[in-house]
Design a protein around this nucleic acid. Structure first.
Lengths: 334, 334
DNA sequence: CTGAAAGCGCTAACAC
DNA sequence: GTGTTAGCGCTTTCAG
């Protein structure tokens, strides 16, 4: 069995009491410098690390934060996670990542898991299936610090940070319009997600500003966020089989953007389409099919979400003023 | 402050002792069924979750495993992580993921972090920079269960699981040879990594079997695993500027495969090259430049590594017989 | 300046 | 069957 050294080990080895050792290791003041030196050197020598379980039992803090995302195998989220880690590790926090794979049940289980694991706070991006957020609200009401990023819960009052999804969608749609297209379909994530709502708004606003009446048949939702290829395929097929075939598609998520291109290729259709979509993929330049992309500052979003969360966690007083940060996207025309 | 209910809360609420409640919850024998029912129902009602820190203090088990990979934003690793999680969660273990970004220093810090966080075991894939594995061997010697996957440490005696890198590299190289190429360059990860060594072996064996003398100038290592674009660019540029320009490249990693294509595109060279490389990307079919890929069963490797680790963790007796599993790759010709 | 002792939440002897 | 108690590793009064 793996048994790391304890305070007591140091104490007995040095003929001191555990409290003296404890103080030597942290307090600094009111301890003789020789004892301190002695202890520190010995601790260093045996590579002493305080037992985090004992510590968090005492301090009621685990120095870890939980992250809930739909999947790590996703350009956006993996970049966001790197941002999260960059801040968390600097501040001495561990990061526990969990994936929902866009499943509501999985989300509930994971959240429960994380809470029971006594994380000090949660960084949450909702799953595509999640319509009811009471599992999160319950925890939040009990005082568990929580920050939403990307896919936020409107009805939970805490910090939220997103890309400017409305504007990003608007920009992409305008790009399609300016490319001479007017029959622009919209393939997007499940309808209840905040990102879907905002991106739909931007898409609609662009159409209207350019005198195009939005066609409801052109809007296709993937309720599992494109976790199943079939889901994307049927959505794309449906819209492409309309009598009034679209001449462009604006896609509302990373997974769907890539998925849409795959479907078009596999079905061998839509060679004359222009596609624009949200995507943080770094390989888009290598695609044979040009994809104009809306790129989100995922790394920064992860960083800022973490900063906000740590602020909540470490705040002495209960926080009642919450921020709603919105960060600009960038359009990459291809 | 978020204060979850404790055993004591239940005990006082129900007028019982903590030990009775504890027993009722863990369903030991010799407890009256009505008390048990009472306790279980109340616990359910207030959504009681045992405090994991207290538990692991007692049981000396944290029910969590640590994972060390170079980065999650990587096709191979993100799939492997999903495999790891699929097993771990089923068995009631948490997964703490850490990234090295191919840095040796970061690897040491993370490993230290994980060990001090008292994980029950470690799933490790070495960073590109790691030549010295003593930080891992120390922990292993102290009894911390450890399983290596993908990038293994030869000198640590424990379970190891990898793809058949040698054969995968051989297959890819043979494909290039059979496509009529004989001047095959090899772009690969840092030289000390097990995967680099094995893939180089397969490459060399293929060449020799087909009567081609390996040309040392054709072999380029990226010592930071391609974390920096420049690193890949200069490696590719160097080999392409040779007097005897290669007519094909075999690439030894996921990141490098994609990176190599980017470089060729950006430098606008190598249009007549044939490229084959290790990659688990799911978007290769969308690339304008066809990339024949060697795909590893990353998800399964993650699963099996986790099973082996849990086996070690939960074994009553010290394990002395270790497996060295090798799993076949698949070649996708494009 | 240092030691003794209590207590964080939980389990496991040991009483009764 | 159920309660009492000690102790996991640590911090923190409280004494001295």
């Amino acid at each position: 069995m793996f048994e790391p050294p304890t305070l007591k080990d140091i104490a007995t080895a040095l003929g001191l009491s555990t409290s003296t050792v404890s103080r030597a290791l942290r307090d600094t003041y009111e301890i003789s410098s020789k004892t301190k030196k002695l202890v520190l050197e010995y601790a260093e020598k045996i590579n002493y690390q305080p037992n985090p379980s004992a510590l968090s039992l005492k301090v009621r803090r685990s120095k870890s934060i939980g992250v809930l995302v739909s999947e790590v195998a996703n350009y956006y989220f993996s970049q966001a996670i790197s941002g999260i880690e960059s801040i968390a590790y600097d501040r001495g926090y561990h990061v526990i990542i969990t994936q929902t794979h866009e499943s509501y049940d999985r989300e509930k289980i994971n959240i429960q898991h994380l809470a029971s694991r006594s994380v000090d706070g949660l960084l949450v991006s909702l799953s595509a299936e999640t319509a009811d957020t009471s599992h999160l609200r319950d925890l939040h009401d009990k005082g568990l610090p929580m920050v939403f990023f990307d896919r936020i819960a409107e009805d939970i009052n805490t910090h939220k940070i997103t890309a400017n999804n409305e504007q990003g969608a608007y920009d992409a749609t305008v790009h399609l319009i300016k490319s001479g297209k007017r029959k622009i379909a919209h393939l997007t994530n499940s309808g209840q997600l905040s990102i879907s709502i905002d991106r739909l708004k931007g898409y609609t606003r662009a159409l209207q500003e350019y005198g195009i009446t939005p066609n409801p048949n052109y809007i296709k939702h993937c309720n599992h966020g494109g976790m199943f290829y079939d889901e994307i395929e049927s959505a794309v097929a449906e819209v492409m089989n309309l009598k009034d075939t679209p001449d462009a598609i604006f896609v509302g998520s990373d997974r769907l953007s890539v998925g849409c291109l795959s479907v078009l290729k596999n079905l061998n259709i839509g060679q004359d389409l222009i596609i624009a979509g949200f995507s943080n993929a770094d390989v888009l330049d290598l695609f044979s099919y040009p994809l104009t992309s809306v790129r989100q500052p995922a790394f920064e979003i992860g960083q800022q979400a973490t900063e906000l969360l740590l602020q909540l966690i470490e705040s002495k007083h209960p926080v009642t003023e919450f921020e709603n940060r919105v960060i600009d996207t960038k359009l990459f025309v291809r």
